[in-house]
């Protein structure tokens, strides 16, 4: 187990090196924007991987937690004038509280019922954001959200946000790897394999499910807050159920049950619509077909594909 943690840490170091070198090669701010959005999605999908791949539960409502993080922190900082760091933390705590409450009640549900409950949560949040115009600005959105400040430094440019967001992401990835290689992480993994067997071994399924749910909601809330203070503008459209669906699709695309799969899935699927914007007409067609194709032909996602290729190469070298 410890060897695997070492391996993940080495890979993480490699990723960090790549991340900190990249802005010196890429000079187009548009690429930086896409990379920043990718980082936020990776953060959320990481949390979803804990929930889906480790605890074996489905949620189609995580865009709702994004919205809570984004609107919560944005509105607080706009109305009170507090520093975005503090409001991010407050929104995070609020989301954790709500997610814990939700988790305790709805994680008793299974399969379809859990999917519907999380969808219903997302839809209720979405329609509330649209309708409560006096508070949230309604469909046109909420402009003028203050950026993060570090002493005299205002982190408003794409480059500054790049370093901020990716540093936070790398830190959280580090912590997540610690978690999944700890006994708690193994308990979660056991839950996904067989809930009954896990319960027989003395793992309390409900408690661990709630833990994974709250963690994944916290990741999403954090991503939402960073999104709001980075782009300085948010609108309800960003947080509809399609975004929730996309997030889970990223997790499956990359390979569920693997944190690196989350990095790979969100890292490739986030830029894809931007690439496909050249042929906008066919965008849905290609996206839909690609999603079906990967799920049918590569059930373990990109990560499974990558591991198969690596293994066949190393076994080829031995023989």
């Amino acid at each position: 187990m410890f060897a695997r943690l070492q391996k993940d840490r080495r890979r993480l170091l490699g990723l960090a090196l790549l991340i900190y070198i990249l802005p010196f090669i890429l000079h187009n701010p548009y690429y930086l924007t896409v990379l920043n959005l990718s980082a936020l999605n990776i953060l959320t999908v990481c949390g979803l991987t804990l929930l889906i791949g480790y605890a074996g539960q489905i949620s189609l409502g995580h865009a709702g937690f994004w919205a809570l993080g984004a609107y919560g922190s944005a509105l607080l900082s706009l109305h009170t004038g507090w520093s975005p760091w503090i409001t991010t933390l407050l929104a995070l705590l609020g989301t954790i509280g709500l997610a814990a409450l939700m988790g305790v009640t709805i994680l008793r549900l299974r399969g379809n019922y859990l999917v519907m409950a999380t969808l219903a949560f997302n839809l209720a949040v979405y329609f509330f954001l649209v309708e409560a115009e006096d508070l949230t600005g309604g469909p046109p959105g909420l402009p003028g959200i203050p950026p993060y400040k570090l002493g005299p430094l205002v982190l408003a440019s794409d480059l500054a946000a790049y370093f901020l967001i990716w540093t936070v992401l790398l830190l959280i990835l580090f912590l997540t790897f610690n978690l999944v290689h700890s006994s708690e992480g193994r308990a979660l993994k056991a839950l996904a394999a067989s809930e009954t067997a896990a319960a027989c071994l003395g793992i309390n399924p409900h408690w661990y499910k709630v833990l994974a749910f709250v963690l994944s909601a916290a990741y999403a809330s954090l991503a939402g807050s960073f999104y709001a203070h980075y782009l300085s503008f948010i609108s309800p459209k960003t947080f509809d159920i399609f975004f929730s669906v996309e997030l889970v699709a990223m997790s499956l695309f990359g390979g569920r049950g693997s944190i690196w799969g989350a990095v790979l899935g969100a890292g490739t699927l986030t830029p894809l619509p931007h690439l496909l914007s050249f042929f906008d007409e066919y965008r849905d067609l290609i996206y839909g077909a690609l999603l079906m194709g990967v799920l049918i032909f590569f059930p373990q996602g990109l990560m499974g594909l990558l591991e198969r290729v690596l293994r066949s190469k190393s076994s080829g070298l031995k023989s």
């Binding site: 889906i52 489905i58 399969g111 999917v115 669906v245 889970v248 699709a249 499956l252 569920r256 007409e281 066919y282 965008r283 849905d284 067609l285 290609i286 996206y287 839909g288 077909a289 690609l290 999603l291 079906m292 799920l295 049918i296 059930p299």
Partner: peptide, 23 residues
């Protein structure tokens, strides 16, 4: 492949059908 994969195939199909309709 398990229900989650199948459900997401239908979501892919849903996006695909909307793409066809738009076209």
């Amino acid at each position: 492949r398990g229900p989650l994969t199948l459900i997401f195939i239908t979501i892919g199909a849903s996006i695909f059908i909307r793409g066809v309709i738009k076209l």
